[in-house]
Simulated assay, not measured.
Amino acid sequence: MKSILLPALVTSLSASLLCAVPATAQNRNVDKRVERLEQEMRAVQRKVFPGGSSRFFEPDIRPDAAAPATTSTTTSAVSDLITRVDALERSLANLTGQVEQNDFRIKQIEDKMAAATTTAPDPLAAPSSGTAGTETLTAETSSTASAPDPERVTGVASIIMPETGDDGEDAYIYGYRLWAEKYYPEAQTQLKKAAADHPGHRRASFAKNLLGRAYLDDGKPALAAIALYENYQELPRGERAPDSLYFLSTALVQLNKKTEACQTLSELEDVYPSVATGRLSARVARGKGAADCN
């Protein structure tokens, strides 16, 4: 991106600088102006230093014709020359300032471009053998939220949080209801809040597991893998820790990491044998088929 934009910036800068120089200055021959200025300087020098050596001054004025110049003539010529040099210096200073300002603007644009082209994190890091995920799991970058849909806002507002007196239970059930109605982003927010606000509640394991499922249903398998692995790691005795390992294998299959998915299912069978052969037996069999486990 940078290589395409910079030539256009340079062209724009060149045009702006040309516009900054007066039209008369563009149409004059710089070499002729410098030559004329040097000739005038020589003339002034001859008047200030009459009879100077021809080694330094051209013999366009005869030595015998040279006469001491009056103070007023000398002062007038020098003043005129100083005025013209001052004008040239002011023009150069103005042009230099414009160049510096444009350089600064280009630097700002390049910095913004560099920030905009920062690459997103790599996909999920694979769990190591026999541990179902000792390596760090990298989150997917979330897409930019679109403007709220009035119909969606109304639908979410229609889902009421229960009030049973058990805040942990009510927080989880509200997240579950949002998920069941397929309001996945809202469910994710609520389930994260439920687990964070009630970490010691039995429903914390449920909330973290359902959070992973909400990410899966929302098409975000890398975020799902993070939430599910964290539930298994942080709450291994939680009621939904075995389920999180199963859904973690599902997320890994979606991320084209079938070998790691098989390792995760093996971990499930080793750590929770009774659940793997009982309540989750059908899911474990489907998971092995999806991951092409031997």
Rank of each mutant, 00 (worst) to 15 (best):
E151A: 13
R33L: 12
L13G: 08
G52V: 13
T73L: 12
G175V: 15
A180E: 15
M113T: 03
T134M: 01
Q188S: 12
E140Y: 01
E267D: 06
D166W: 09
Q98T: 04
L13C: 07
V78D: 05
A224P: 03
K47T: 08
I106Y: 02
D64V: 14
G287V: 14
D292S: 14
A67L: 07
S16Q: 10
F104S: 05
S16R: 09
T70G: 13
T75V: 09
N231L: 01
T250I: 09
P127S: 00
T118D: 03
L178V: 15
I173R: 15
L17C: 06
L5S: 03
D217K: 13
Q233W: 00
K257W: 02
P221E: 04
P150G: 04
R286M: 12
W179P: 05
Y272E: 08
P22R: 07
M1H: 06
S3I: 12
Q26H: 13
Y232F: 08
G51Q: 11
A291D: 09
A157M: 05
S281Q: 14
A132I: 01
A227W: 01
L216S: 05
H198L: 10
F206W: 14
V34H: 06
A114Y: 02
T74H: 03
L9P: 03
S54Q: 11
A145R: 09
K192Q: 15
L235I: 02
R283D: 14
T138G: 00
Q188V: 15
Y229T: 05
Q254H: 04
S14K: 05
A15S: 07
Q45S: 10
Q254I: 01
V48C: 07
T141I: 03
Q98E: 06
E110R: 12
Q263T: 09
A171M: 12
G200K: 14
E260L: 04
V85K: 09
A194S: 15
P68K: 11
A222L: 02
S53R: 14
T141D: 00
I106E: 02
V34F: 11
S266K: 09
P185L: 08
G51Y: 07
L37Y: 08
R152L: 06
R237D: 01
A126W: 00
T264Y: 07
S53V: 12
D31E: 09
K288D: 07
A204P: 08
L9S: 05
S3L: 07
L252V: 01
R203K: 13
P162Q: 10
